[in-house]
Amino acid sequence: MTGSVATRVLGVIGLAAAAVMAILALWVSPADAVQGDAVRLMYVHVPSIWVAYGGFVLTAFASARVLWRTRSGAGGTEGVIADRQARHWDRVAGTAAELGVMFTGLTLVTGSLWGKVTWGTYWQWDARLTTTVLLFVTYLGYLALRRLPAESRARARRSAVMALIAVVNLPIVHYSVDWWRTLHQEASLEIGIGGERNYSGEMYWTLLYSWATFTLIALWIGIHRYRVLRLEELAEEAALEELLSQRRSEPRQDEPVTDR
């Protein structure tokens, strides 16, 4: 029950956009002069990583908001509002990271398939590929950390710290991997991934259109995912309520009830 009028409209638009995208990307847009039809993988590969980057930026922003809203506790109404906003941003961070991981994974898979056609191998220890796979694993770890059961405020703060460390670490990873590879093989694999500038106008517009489509679909899934997280919290609260009322209806025992 996570749909609404807005998401239904968004979903229909997303589906239609995806259908048009398939036609544009697989049929209308021309084959590349060098790579031939293999270039059509670009329209899923590049938008995937753009959406993933967007997701990770949103995760970082939301995580900063979580830490900001959970600074040492304000009491009363203000505290309740701050707590509610922190939970909101925590859900946003989790949703965005999950989408980011999925689209990074898709980028790696489509990139391998593309590489097999253009380079002849699924994988190259290229700087960008290595950075991307480390990015993927880092955020897999982030999602794993989020899954562990804990008190919600502590979990939100812990995840937020992890997300921000990941962001600080990213430039270091990128720089060191870049340096590592460029010292060993000069200007290697620019045909496939790096050469978007050389593509024709139609390809450029198809790429932008695909990116818009991917963003719409990611948004649609994201809204639903956010609401599922909200429902999960509600279910947890309901379960706790039930447990408490059971406890209250039990005959009093002598030992005090400890909540640990």
Binding site: G141, A144, I165, N169, V173, S176
Partner: peptide, 10 residues
């Protein structure tokens, strides 16, 4: 290990 190793990559 899952959290630490990617961060330690550089």
């Amino acid at each position: 290990p899952l959290l630490l190793i990617p961060v330690a990559a550089p």
